[in-house]
Amino acid sequence: MAEVPFIAIEGPIGIGKTSLAKKLSVHFDIHLLKEIVEENPFLGKFYDDIEEWSFQTEMFFLCNRFKQLEDIETKYLNNNKAVIADYHISKNMIFSKRTLKADKFVKYEKIYQILTSDMPVPNMMIYLHASLDTVLERIQKRGRDIEQNIKPSYLAQLMQDYEDYMNEFEILHPEIPVIRINGDETDFVRHQDDLERIIDQVDRKLNDVVATKQ
């Protein structure tokens, strides 16, 4: 039986995950799953004082993403309907390792493992990355009030965390194709040619995914 395509797009804050997910969702006519961000009541406080508000922020994200994936599995994947998401739930571990104190991280990790042990896993990853200057410029352009207090030093650390995570992901999950897109060289929002190149890459990988287990 062929696998149902489940694509996840990942990368640091402001890199363009949602914009790309929307465009690919329309092109391939598959369901779009968008993560809940601005609805998090702790996020503004988090960017003002990371240490004070990190646990509350990460727990909100974890619980909401768990519920979203649970619904996606029931309503779409189990009914042979493809999905593209602008996040991978494992991003919770990327952020929590960076922001939580050791004692709280231990508690958080236990909850994370319990909630995600039987969650659906993407069978394709798209990883967007760019320089710090490019990411800061895009954050400024989209103008979310809650993101204006993000410290460049925190963002730089987070970007390195993502790079380390994706390098490890490709080693641990060789069966899951990863498409890497350099945001310094690619602007799929303003340039149709860039978008079409990404679509071609995704199309080739999708053919491999749907052929799996046939």
Rank of each mutant, 00 (worst) to 15 (best):
Val4Asn: 03
Phe6Leu: 13
Ala8Gln: 09
Glu10Tyr: 03
Glu10Val: 09
Pro12Lys: 08
Pro12Thr: 02
Lys17Glu: 10
Ser19Cys: 07
Lys22Asn: 13
His27Asn: 13
Phe28Asp: 02
Ile30Thr: 01
Lys34Tyr: 05
Val37Tyr: 03
Glu38Tyr: 02
Glu38Gly: 13
Asn40Phe: 08
Asn40Lys: 07
Phe42Pro: 03
Leu43Gln: 02
Gly44Pro: 04
Lys45Tyr: 10
Asp49Lys: 07
Glu52Thr: 15
Glu52Gln: 14
Trp53Cys: 09
Ser54Pro: 04
Phe55Asp: 06
Gln56Gly: 11
Gln56Phe: 14
Phe60Ala: 04
Cys63Thr: 11
Cys63Ile: 12
Cys63Tyr: 15
Phe66Gln: 05
Leu69Thr: 02
Glu70Lys: 11
Glu73Tyr: 15
Thr74Arg: 14
Lys75Asp: 03
Asn79Ser: 10
Lys81Met: 10
Tyr87Glu: 03
Ser90Asp: 12
Ser90Met: 08
Lys91Ser: 04
Lys91Gly: 05
Asn92Ala: 02
Ser96Lys: 04
Ser96Gly: 09
Thr99His: 14
Ala102Thr: 13
Asp103Arg: 15
Lys104Ser: 07
Val106Gln: 15
Val106Met: 15
Tyr112Ser: 10
Gln113Leu: 13
Leu115Gln: 15
Leu115His: 15
Thr116Lys: 09
Thr116Phe: 14
Thr116Ala: 09
Met124Gln: 10
Ser131Trp: 13
Leu132Trp: 11
Leu132His: 10
Leu132Gly: 07
Arg142Ala: 10
Arg142Ser: 10
Gly143Thr: 04
Asp145Trp: 09
Ile146Trp: 01
Ile146Ser: 00
Glu147Ala: 01
Gln148Val: 00
Ile150Met: 00
Pro152Asn: 08
Ser153Val: 12
Ala156Val: 00
Gln157Lys: 05
Gln157Ser: 09
Leu158His: 06
Met159Cys: 04
Gln160Lys: 11
Asp161Met: 07
Glu163Ile: 08
Asp164Tyr: 05
Asp164Asn: 08
Tyr165Thr: 01
Glu168Gly: 06
Phe169Ile: 11
Ile171His: 09
Pro174Glu: 12
Pro174Cys: 07
Glu175Pro: 01
Val178Asn: 01
Ile181Lys: 04
Asn182Glu: 07
Asn182Val: 08
Thr186Leu: 01
Val189Phe: 00
Val189Pro: 00
His191Asn: 15
Asp193Tyr: 09
Leu195Met: 06
Arg197Phe: 04
Ile198Gln: 00
Asp200Asn: 08
Gln201Leu: 08
Val202Gly: 03
Asp203Cys: 08
Lys205Pro: 01
Lys205Trp: 00
Val210Thr: 11
Ala211Gln: 15
Ala211Met: 15
Gln214Ala: 10
